[in-house]
Each structure stands twice: as structure tokens, then as C-alpha cells.
Design a protein around this nucleic acid. Structure first.
Lengths: 217, 217
DNA sequence: ATATTTTTTTAGTTATATCTAAATATGATT
DNA sequence: AATCATATTTAGATATAACTAAAAAAATAT
């Protein structure tokens, strides 16, 4: 598979949210930042290779083979993201572009060893689940801390606002990626949240809570 | 620069041993496993981009710009090799193919951080020097242990025979990559070498010594 | 039900990187 | 110096992946 084919398969996967949903030519064109006519050409090739189901004017969906390929690429992408953040000290918001390139490296041994080296992570730095080698992964519920029900516990998996100011705020209050956060109470008055993090109790504004993503556990 | 252009620049560098030596079209074709006519086409493009000096029928050499590009690619290749061996536990002889892909990843930040992460290594797993960011590197004298003069000291940087049997032998006698080896004496009779390694004295056959590469220090 | 708009496809073109076959230049041999 | 062999280049063709412009199908509106 060429880089281009892999990128199309990935785009179709994301647009169809994995399942068998039909994806339109225009939607793919927009996502790939290309023209619909180019998409039609590529779809035909992918169809010849049995990676997508295609009937003229009816949109496309991934075949079983296509879905597996997509998951394999997504696995690689997310493992590399973990590597960049955990080992090379990249910021969460800097990794995407580089991972877009690394995901196309072809070596099963490499990705197996990388997975082991990273300790078989389940989530990438943005809190998205990493498929296993055989294409399975736990769908997680990712939501904003401000939307998290009282008494539930979430793992901090990312931010919406990644400005230096906000990151500095988080650093100051020792809120970091991977931290367990329990929502204790919500103020009626202004939506402020009482949270528990690392045995500490903290009161944060609704605006702060609205910029922190968590995975429910 | 495309992958293909980068591979040509690298091939020309290696064939010209870095310096201004003229490299023939046929030599490049052989190294790249392609046809001379394809090489001519590519050379013209590289010449237009000021990466090579080219006069019809006279061969090519790298320009200053081309040389810098070549060194940058080689730097990336060798740093990735170190990563694969040191961090991911690849064998010395398994890394080349994967590094051939990784060397084309475009991100200066990535390679800087990788370099730091690896501790700014000077040599790759095969004992070849890693150029610095500004394109400088120490040329080292790489030779077989069997050819190393008496009383000189070398760092073990690779093996000629990478069979399981031989690697097992090295393991058993605790001879590893990076070890300092001093040649104490050579037996007239059969060429056996008395060596000193990690405060231990060892007698190894000429055949063993002929399969270990060292860098003189 | 027909007309209009939108979506999708087809047909023809371009750029990259390759190839084969033919032509031309260089270097070696007589 | 002319001939031959080798090396190199040119010309023309192919596959990939993109594009534009025009045609055709589907969806929407009148």
C-alpha cells in the first residue's frame, strides 16, 4: 500500500466512524483536501484491491480488509504519539504532524517492539484508544470535565485550549496528563467544580473545567 | 525533497566518499538498482535544484548544499539505528531496512530530541560516525581486531559474522558492543590474540578476532 | 412532474519517477 | 586516425496521483 492509499483508508475509517457507514465522495475530498474527481480515481483503485465496497454514486465503506488496514495505521499513529510525548518530551499538540509521517513506516517488528517499549499503552496522549495488534480496542467515553457527572472519576487525557497560559495554569496547580480527577461537587451559582486530584481538593472555574478532557473510568 | 531525491543524494555521497570525487552515472544506477537512463533524468533535476554539479558525460559531484543534505540524511539514518538497537532491542544486523525508511521523516525537532534522548551518540551500531547537526564528524579508523596492532586499544563496534552461533559465543565471553579491548600480544604460531577486556585477560583465536570490528581510540 | 441544484463521474492533462530502445559521446584498440 | 566497445543521453512510453472542465446521475425545489 502506498502512503496515499493508506491516508485514504484512514480518512474513510474516520468519516465512517469505523463501522459500515457509507461515506460520500465529497466528504472524503474535503477531509483529504483534494478534489472529488481525485477521490473517485482513488476509490476505484481501492475497490480493485478489495479495501472498500464501492458502487457508483452510492458512496464507499471499508471492507473487512480495509478496516483492518485502517486500524493498523491508527495503531501505529497513536503509538508513535505516545513515544513522542512520553519519551521525547513533545507537547500534546505538537505530535500530530510527525505521527502522520511515522504511521507509514513499514515494519511489524518495529511496531511490536515499540508497543512493548512503551508498556502497551491503552490511550494516546489525546486520550484516544490504541487498537491492539488484532484490531480490538476499548471504546472510551471522552468528555469535558465540565460535563462530567458528580461523583464520577476521570483520567485527564487532554486539553481543548493548549495555549501557553492555560498549560502554565495546569502546571502551577499540578494537573497533568494521566491524573485521576474525581468530581466532588458543582456550585449552582457559577458552575465551579470541586474536584479531588492526587489527595488534594481543588476548586476550579467552569471555564477551566470546560477546557480539560477526561476519560471516564 | 522527495524520498527518491534523498536516496540519490545519499548514494552519490557514499560513492564519492563525501568529497568532491566525480561519480559516474552507471555507478549510481548500480547502487540504486535502477537503469542509467533513470539516473540521468534524476541528475538533471538535482542539478536544477543546485544539489549536484553536473556536466553531460562528465559524471556528478555534490554541491555544498547537496553535501549538507546528504549528511543530514545520514545523521538521521544512524541516530535511528542507535534508537532501534539501544532502546528497542533490535540486533545490529536488523536495523538497516527500517532506518532506510525512518531517515526520510521530516522534522528537525524530532531529530534534535531523538539525539538528546539517545545521549548524543558519536557512533551508530555498526561503528560508523554520526554527523553532528552542523555536518561535522570525527572520521574513525574502523578495522578488524585481527588487524589491530599490539598495545593499541579499540572499542568493539560490530561483527562481520552475525550468525547466532557467533553472537552466542560473544555473549558467553561477555564481549559486547561498546567494550574497550586492548590487544596485549599475538601468538606467532596460529595468530591467536591475547586481549584485555573489562579487567579480564582472554585468549581468542585468529578466526574470532577476524570477525570483530573495533574503532581505534 | 419538471426544473434546478448538488454530487459524482468521465475524459483529458500534468508532474514524478520509472522503463525500453535508439542515438550519441567518450575512451580504448588496432 | 579510424574502429570498436562502453558509457551516457535522448526520445518516447508507462504507472501513480493529482488536476480542470464537462457530462451524467441523484437530490431538491418549484
Amino acid at each position: 500500500m502506498t502512503f496515499s492509499e493508506e491516508n485514504y483508508i484512514k480518512a474513510i475509517y474516520h468519516l465512517g466512524i469505523g463501522n459500515e457507514k457509507m461515506v460520500s465522495t465529497n466528504a472524503i475530498a474535503e477531509k483529504m483536501e483534494t478534489k472529488p474527481s481525485s477521490v473517485t480515481d482513488m476509490i476505484k483503485k481501492l475497490s480493485d484491491k478489495d479495501l472498500v465496497n464501492y458502487k457508483k454514486y452510492q458512496g464507499v465503506s471499508l471492507t473487512e480488509l480495509g478496516r483492518n488496514k485502517a486500524l493498523s495505521i491508527i495503531r501505529k499513529h497513536r503509538l508513535w504519539e505516545v513515544f513522542l510525548v512520553d519519551k521525547l518530551d513533545f507537547q500534546w499538540d505538537e505530535v500530530h504532524e510527525v505521527a502522520e509521517q511515522l504511521e507509514h513506516i513499514k515494519s511489524e517488528k518495529l511496531i511490536d517492539k515499540l508497543d512493548t517499549y512503551l508498556g502497551h499503552p491503552k490511550l494516546d496522549p489525546h486520550g484516544d484508544p490504541i487498537p491492539t495488534k488484532d484490531g480490538k480496542f476499548k471504546e472510551t467515553v471522552k468528555l469535558l470535565l465540565s460535563e462530567t457527572p458528580i461523583n464520577s472519576i476521570g483520567v485527564c487525557i487532554g486539553v481543548k485550549d493548549s495555549s501557553a497560559t492555560f498549560l502554565k495554569f495546569l502546571d502551577k496547580h499540578k494537573i497533568a496528563l494521566g491524573d485521576m480527577i474525581k468530581v466532588l461537587d458543582k456550585e449552582e451559582f457559577d458552575g465551579s467544580l470541586h474536584i479531588q486530584i492526587k489527595q488534594r481538593n481543588l476548586l476550579i472555574s467552569e471555564q477551566i473545567a470546560g477546557n480539560i478532557f477526561v476519560n471516564l473510568v
